[in-house]
């Protein structure tokens, strides 16, 4: 039984002007005084209510910085909510930042092992999957080489293969996934589809509105950390596209800068094209 329940959840980041303070500076420059090191509160998410059960496929859309990825990280348990209550039941698999966190001195096989343990596998359950994961990467004998020597595409292949080997109940996906070369992308897309159909509950963030329409049973439109609209994916996506498109063509002046060279009038159609 997989379940997500967010009850009036807010998340506020308190950012200081000075990050990574050293003790020396703290004393000498008096950074303990609030005036010397002002704090800024950023409301990443505000008063979010969300309930999802088995079978729900939720798509999250919104502008950059609207809090979409933050929301996924909150669901994954990486960010604790500042206020409100959060319940997520079921084994979570999250596909974001997947190329982070390799042990660069260890070889591919060992990294498969560490990652898999991180996802809650045991030596016994991993044994059965190890070969499948290795085959899926198509890295062959490169798996015996320290990960330090891998190209970024190879790293993504490795990461993707491990991350998708789990059988999650709750699947969280962020803006997937230009994985590797063409051949691998097709494979990856296939694998994603399988995962989405086997997961009991899925939350995905995407700018690809068509895939939200086709894959999701519900959609959420986030704006500046609050839910603008939630409900049927077609309705939400339509409302979102409407809100984006006319705003730009109606106010072309918004794009004009103070720079006289760039202040020439621009055809609205051209702007719409650029925005799309």
């Amino acid at each position: 039984m997989a379940k997500i329940e967010l009850n009036d959840v807010s998340l506020t980041f308190t950012l200081s002007q000075e990050r990574r303070v050293t003790f020396k500076e703290y004393l000498i420059r008096g950074l303990f005084l609030p005036s010397r090191n002002p704090k800024v509160a950023v409301h990443a998410l505000a008063n979010i209510n969300l309930t999802a059960n088995d079978g729900d496929r939720i798509g999250i859309i919104g502008h950059n910085g609207a809090g979409k990825s933050t929301m996924l990280k909150l669901l994954a348990g990486i960010y604790p909510p500042t206020s409100g209550t959060k319940t997520v039941e079921g084994k979570i698999c999250s596909l974001f930042d997947i190329s982070l966190g390799f042990e660069h001195e260890a070889n591919g096989w060992d990294n498969i092992m560490y990652r898999a343990y991180l996802q809650g596998e045991t030596p016994r359950s991993l044994k059965a999957k190890l070969q499948d994961i290795a085959d899926f990467t198509e890295l062959g004998s490169f798996l015996n080489v320290p990960v330090r020597y891998y190209s970024s595409g190879m790293l993504v292949r490795l990461a993707f293969s491990i991350a998708t080997a789990a059988e999650p109940e709750v699947l969280l996906i962020d803006e997937v996934l230009s994985v590797g070369d063409m051949a691998f992308q097709n494979k990856a897309r296939q694998r994603m589809k399988e995962m989405m159909s086997s997961a009991r509950l899925m939350v995905m963030v995407s700018h690809d509105l068509e895939s939200i329409r086709s894959l999701c049973t519900r959609a959420i439109w986030l704006q500046q950390g609050t839910i603008m609209m939630a409900g049927d994916p077609d309705e939400v996506v339509d409302a979102y596209t409407e809100s984006v498109a006319p705003k730009i063509s109606r106010h072309p002046a918004g794009l004009v800068t103070d720079d006289p060279d760039q202040a020439e009038p621009v055809e609205p159609a051209e702007i719409v094209e650029r925005a799309a």
Partner: peptide, 9 residues
Amino acid sequence: ESYIRQCPL
């Protein structure tokens, strides 16, 4: 850090 950012251990 990369583990902390990725997984709530």
